[in-house]
Design a protein around this nucleic acid. Sequence first.
DNA 1: GATGAATGAGTTTTCATTCAT
DNA 2: AATGAATGAAAACTCATTCAT
Lengths: 194, 194, 194, 194
Amino acid sequence: MAAKRSATHGISNREQILTAASALFIEQGVEQTSLRAIAGRAGISTGTLFYYYATKSELIFDITDRHFDRITARLLDWVGQAHQSQTPAEILGVVFQTIVQDDLRGRLHHYLIEQALTSNGGVRERFQQKYQEWRAMLQQGLAQVEIPAGDRELVAQIILAALDGFVIQSVLGVADIPLNSIAAYLAAHCKEVS
Amino acid sequence: MAAKRSATHGISNREQILTAASALFIEQGVEQTSLRAIAGRAGISTGTLFYYYATKSELIFDITDRHFDRITARLLDWVGQAHQSQTPAEILGVVFQTIVQDDLRGRLHHYLIEQALTSNGGVRERFQQKYQEWRAMLQQGLAQVEIPAGDRELVAQIILAALDGFVIQSVLGVADIPLNSIAAYLAAHCKEVS
Amino acid sequence: MAAKRSATHGISNREQILTAASALFIEQGVEQTSLRAIAGRAGISTGTLFYYYATKSELIFDITDRHFDRITARLLDWVGQAHQSQTPAEILGVVFQTIVQDDLRGRLHHYLIEQALTSNGGVRERFQQKYQEWRAMLQQGLAQVEIPAGDRELVAQIILAALDGFVIQSVLGVADIPLNSIAAYLAAHCKEVS
Amino acid sequence: MAAKRSATHGISNREQILTAASALFIEQGVEQTSLRAIAGRAGISTGTLFYYYATKSELIFDITDRHFDRITARLLDWVGQAHQSQTPAEILGVVFQTIVQDDLRGRLHHYLIEQALTSNGGVRERFQQKYQEWRAMLQQGLAQVEIPAGDRELVAQIILAALDGFVIQSVLGVADIPLNSIAAYLAAHCKEVS
DNA sequence: GATGAATGAGTTTTCATTCAT
DNA sequence: AATGAATGAAAACTCATTCAT
């Protein structure tokens, strides 16, 4: 279902399609984007598009994969570099900032959630897996933030959920989300039981 | 834009439409639900549907209104009855349980968010207003939970975001969301600065 | 088909309908104007509209009648007052100006022509009658303009046709129609054979 | 916006569509002709029609273009061959006869005028351009009819307008339009100032 | 590998007209 | 006389998908 290499520049076409599709999905939503439009922006014919993706669902599937990979990569980065930031507040702040403020990915994220709810495909299962995965990664990252080992799982859960919630608000344009204060607050209060 | 009552049983028809539309939106998503299907389930003709709602957007708008009213009502309930539960943990737990576990409303919520992102209409503005409103209500409710006045705003923000996040996970079927432990943890750690 | 008086203020309603319909026909064209819209602007219900006009065709018929009456009245005026203007050029100029420059009536005229071509009704026959009638009236008016009696019929034909032609151009917004020069030219050249 | 040729028999399809559309527009009027009917007569599916013309407006636009081209071609013919006819009266007579008596094109002409008035599209602007163009062509043609140079513009205006007027009457079926006498009269009286 | 013309079932929307009250 | 809710048939438009080349 995902990329199969070939001798010619098929890969390049696949890239072209995925890039075009991502962009259009973000701009207009998944349902509102026609395959013809995707082919058009990718600079290929609809026939060619169908050569690579026999179904719109398949294409959405690949887009989802990519999207997940990017989120995961971002989290990995964060886990790896977490110790470089001095204070716990700063460490948390970084996640909040980078994830919440990427509006484009935020929009895509929600369009894909809708696909997960709507389409029968495996998208939903992938989401379930990924959320578990991200939770685990967050937990790892938190190990470096002086949070008592026993609390890490809960804190990771809260942060993961809050992230999604703030992404929603950001994407909707809800005003006044004091991300930094929130990160600081969480850092301070989760450090140890009062 | 919202319901105009009439002498005859026009109300009944409007109700019928809204009920049918809500149900179908929840089952299949907003985009996937055709007006014909709504009319069919409501037991009226497409022409009659048009008589009440000249546009799919208008109908969505009314559905959104209703949805918001229910959420608000639920929060009002909670604010009013918060003192009846004994412990802060219990008080928080109630919100989490009642809101997160109403999967149907959760689905609708996210379909409507997609509408807000996609359609240019006023739906998005309504969302912005409502989120501000709900945040304020949460703050009020928290006044009864021994949280230092200065922190209430941030805590309300966190809880509101986390609620949305958990709704997403619940709707997606992500396993193992220990809502009660989370409520307890939040109640314990937000009570006062360590 | 036309106005039947009644004891109550039925007449007033009829007037209301005709006024609203004329206005909307001119603004949007006959086809584009729904009966619901007419009823709305007339301040009555669709049911009432149908009480007065059982069919859209009937309404169009009455509007056409009114329109014809106004054109005829204008021509009658002109015939009656033709001698008051001094020069033949001025006399002709008056018809051209008053008829061509009434854009609203011009639009309506062409929308009604389309009805005549399209609908099966008697509208077309009415047009045929009226054009003959108007031609005769023009001929009468020309009697006062020193045109040799033998030529009057042809000149009336030419003027009548040219009028319609200039109305088209005026309504379409074609630039530079020197109506006065044209009237002067016609007056000068038709007076007598060179 | 206009025809783009393709390697296969796409041309044939486009032609098919334009032919079917023209015929139906003439028979029933533009508004009364459904795209389905056009597709039906063209022997293609509605989807295919959409493939060539994404919008009814686009199709109308192309039809308009074609219609204009034919009128222009006819006038060009006339300008080129004007000297072959002997008398000025005959020369004028040719235009009147050929243009006025083509009832089909006359009907189409008026349906398209309605489109120009109704739809906001570029149709109206095209009409304005074309009328200026035709006026200039008529002027050129008149150069060969012994009309004093100074009068040619006015005469062209009058003839152009009268043409439209007679087309209307012809299409409406108004009786007794002595086109030849009129041409003769115009030829005689415009030749030189009395 | 690549094309793009072709399709048909589907969508939202429109509206003249009817009729019980 | 007057209402306005109700209708069904039809309109324009959309689009994922197929297939001959």
